[in-house]
């Protein structure tokens, strides 16, 4: 009884809404997830070779970074609108837009991560007879992983949030529900969809953080060493 009342009263928080529209919410969440996931995955696949090209062939670095920065400056609504005539009304509009946004962050971070690999580590690997491919995948990439993962987390969280704007072409995942709710002034729908969106972003961020911890067990040791050093220094200062 009280449940239907909250629908009639157009309350912000309404359990009855979540119960009666659970199918709609699940579908929107799934669409949100696959659009975000596909975009970031494609972005990563494209960013990796671009970063390698920019590193190997110096003159390309400026234009690659400059072009991706220009893309990043274009507001999302304009980006989707500009892609509309290319793909028509389809999910490709949103996915392509998000891929272009994630490229900026990913190329920059992969490049920064690879640049930060100590020359000594490279020399040592070469001395051990590592070829260029084994050097890249066995030494450089693992050492660049924290920077790459940091970029991946930023790109993913941004993509979760920007997917909502895809509602303009009908492929915005939870954004579709926000858009509908906006037009029908349906408060519970807007608030519920927005909240799920934020939860998705936080969950994706934590998931990637966990993946990073698993992939780079050595950094945990280093953080401890750093903390231990800091404590030692502080102790010394206190002694003085």
């Amino acid at each position: 009884m009280a449940g239907s009342d909250c629908l009639a009263a157009n309350d912000w928080i309404c359990g009855e809404y979540v119960r009666s529209r659970s199918q709609e919410l699940t579908d929107a969440t799934l669409q949100h997830l696959w659009i975000t996931g596909a975009s970031v995955a494609i972005g990563l696949l494209l960013a990796f070779p671009l970063a390698l090209v920019a590193r190997r062939w110096r003159p390309a670095a400026g234009p690659v970074l400059g072009f991706t920065t220009v893309l990043y400056t274009v507001p999302s609504l304009a980006m989707y609108s500009l892609l509309l005539p290319v793909f028509g009304v389809s999910a490709a509009v949103v996915v392509t837009g998000l891929v272009l946004y994630s490229l900026t962050i990913l190329v920059r971070n992969i490049l920064a991560g690879l640049e930060a690999v100590p020359e000594d580590a490279r020399e040592a690997a070469r001395g051990m007879g590592y070829g260029p491919l084994r050097l890249l995948f066995g030494v450089e990439l693992p050492l660049a992983l924290p920077a790459v993962m940091a970029g991946l987390r930023i790109a993913t969280v941004s993509a979760v949030s920007l997917t909502t704007v895809g509602a303009i072409v009908g492929y915005g995942g939870l954004g579709n529900l926000i858009y509908e709710g906006m037009n029908s002034l349906f408060k519970a729908q807007v608030l519920t969809a927005s909240a799920i969106c934020v939860v998705l972003a936080i969950a994706a961020d934590l998931l990637l953080l966990g993946v990073q911890r698993l992939l780079t067990p050595w950094t945990r040791g280093r953080t401890n060493a750093r903390a231990a050093r800091r404590i030692r220094i502080r102790a010394r200062k206190a002694a003085v």
Binding site: I154, V157, S158, V160, S161, L162, T164, V165, A167, G175, I178, Y179, G181, M182, L185, K187, V190, L191, A193, S194, C197, V198, A201, I202, D205
Partner: peptide, 18 residues
């Protein structure tokens, strides 16, 4: 800054208008 990135701008705009 991290929090600002996770919250969709579109959602906040609609929530404030409603």
């Amino acid at each position: 800054s991290n929090a600002g990135r996770a919250v969709p701008t579109f959602a906040v705009l609609v929530l404030l208008v409603l």
